[in-house]
Design a protein around this nucleic acid. Sequence first.
DNA 1: ACGCATTTTCGGAATGATTCCTAATTAGAT
DNA 2: ATCTAATTAGGAATCATTCCGAAAATGCGT
Lengths: 149, 149
Amino acid sequence: MRHSTGQKDRESRLLRQLREKGYKLTSQRLAIIHLLAGDTSHPSASDVLKRARKRVPKISMSTVYYALDMLKREGLIRELEFYEKENRYDINISDHINLVCRKCGKIEDFMGEVPLSPTEVEGKTGFRPEGMRFEFYGYCRACKNRGKR
Amino acid sequence: MRHSTGQKDRESRLLRQLREKGYKLTSQRLAIIHLLAGDTSHPSASDVLKRARKRVPKISMSTVYYALDMLKREGLIRELEFYEKENRYDINISDHINLVCRKCGKIEDFMGEVPLSPTEVEGKTGFRPEGMRFEFYGYCRACKNRGKR
DNA sequence: ACGCATTTTCGGAATGATTCCTAATTAGAT
DNA sequence: ATCTAATTAGGAATCATTCCGAAAATGCGT
């Protein structure tokens, strides 16, 4: 395992990186980063807004989008578009596979080895991969036991 | 290789399946199915509209969406949401990997073996996969040679 | 601690893809 | 040829996201 990815570690790492790049650490951003660092549920922008308001009640949706966009541009979070309406944001930027439950909507990370290397793909096709997205859609342990609907 | 997937084959197979299920084969649908069957470029809904109008000039966007939704519900095409605005539609519903070019936007299919079995995932996680989506983002052969920007 | 330049925030308006609605049309069965 | 249910067209509605401009706040230098 390369990083220990505890919430505290992750949070202070993010804050340090932003400070180094000269971003201002406003109370709004502190709240957003804090909640993202401790969240593996892949929240949507409105989820982020709702939770950020517990600390900063007057934060606006525009601010949430502005902050998420900044984190995204800096490569500190990953944005995922799914088959539902809203995008989801993932603090786990390492290559991994998402397991998306079709019943409850939960998104788990599957951290096993990614079984296909960019080099192999480029060798066979000439296409040079720089990023990836692997997902399985199905039913999580809880939902598959309760019946799919 | 399991199916020969020539355009003609694919088109008549789609039409047969729809007829069997009792769908009406209108001129609008014939045009849409014809163009999708011969298209591996993963067109968006507005691409489909534009090309369908060559055969059926008065076809409306609502009709295109209605037809795409029907094909999708019947499992005859696959809808993909990407990081651009519009969804894309893929006539290739077998499991495969998409190679998405960040410069020209082209989406190629990579038909090699999918290197991770649903059974393996379920064994390790309890999650039961039913569908998948694997993508690499990068630069296609043409774009990588011309420089990325 | 204070002022300043720049970034960030906020609220609302604009955008744009998709969905919804309703009346008119049409395919396919009888 | 008639009938009925499905389909179409066009426009309105929706909803996430982006854009805009004015006000506020950060963090720098002094």
